[in-house]
Amino acid sequence: MSNAATFDTRTDTAIPVESPLAYSYRRSGAPQAGGPSRLQLRERAMLGHLILRGGAIVLDEAVRDVLGISLPGQPQALVQDASGERSIQWLSPDEWLVIVPGGEEFPLETKLREHLGSAHFAISDVSGGQTLVEISGEAARELLMKTVIYDVHPSHFPVGKGVTTVFGKATTIIRRPSEDRWELVIRRSFADYCYRWLLDAAAEYGVNVQQ
C-alpha cells in the first residue's frame, strides 16, 4: 500500500449536490430548439474522475485487473469498457484520466492502490473539479471548429482519440468515444465560460440542451 492518504469525498446521504454547470443553467438556461435542432448538448454530471499517474508498465496490469480494460499506451488514445460507461484516456506518458460512473471512483482508487502496493504511482480524485459535456448532431464538428484549435476532421480525429487543447481562451479535454458523439471534459471554474461559449456558437444551428 502506497503511503498516501485516501479520502472518499462523496457521501451517500440525500445531501444536495450541484454540478459545475448548476449556476450556468440558472443564468443562461438550457435552450430547446425543438425537433429539428442540428446539435445536442448534454452534461454528464457527477461522474467519477481520477487522475492516474505512474509508469505505463506499472499501471497497466493493475488497471486491467481492476477495471477490465487495458491502459492505453499510445498518445491520445481513449479506451472504454464494453458498456461505454468507463473509460481511460492517455493524457501524457505518465498520466491518464479515468472516468467511471459516479461513486465508483473511491472503490476503484482503493482497489488500484491495493493492487499497486508499494510501486511508485499517484491517484488523485478530481471528480468535483470537472464535468463532462456531450455534443452530438450534424453540426457538432462545425461547432468544434469554432471552439477548439485542434483539428477535428475525422481523418485526423478518429473514434478512440482524446486530446487536451485550447477551448476559446480556456482549455479542455476533447474526446471522440463514438462516430456521432464528442465529449468535452471541462474544468469546474471555467464551466460557465465554456457553456456560454458553446451556446453562443451553437445558436445558429439550433441546439437542444439536455440537463
Binding site: P20, Y23, F190
Partner: peptide, 16 residues
Amino acid sequence: RHCRDLFDPERYTALH
C-alpha cells in the same frame, strides 16, 4: 466571438 461577455473567461467558484 472574443468580445463582450465572452471577451475573457471568468472563473467562478462553486459558491458564485
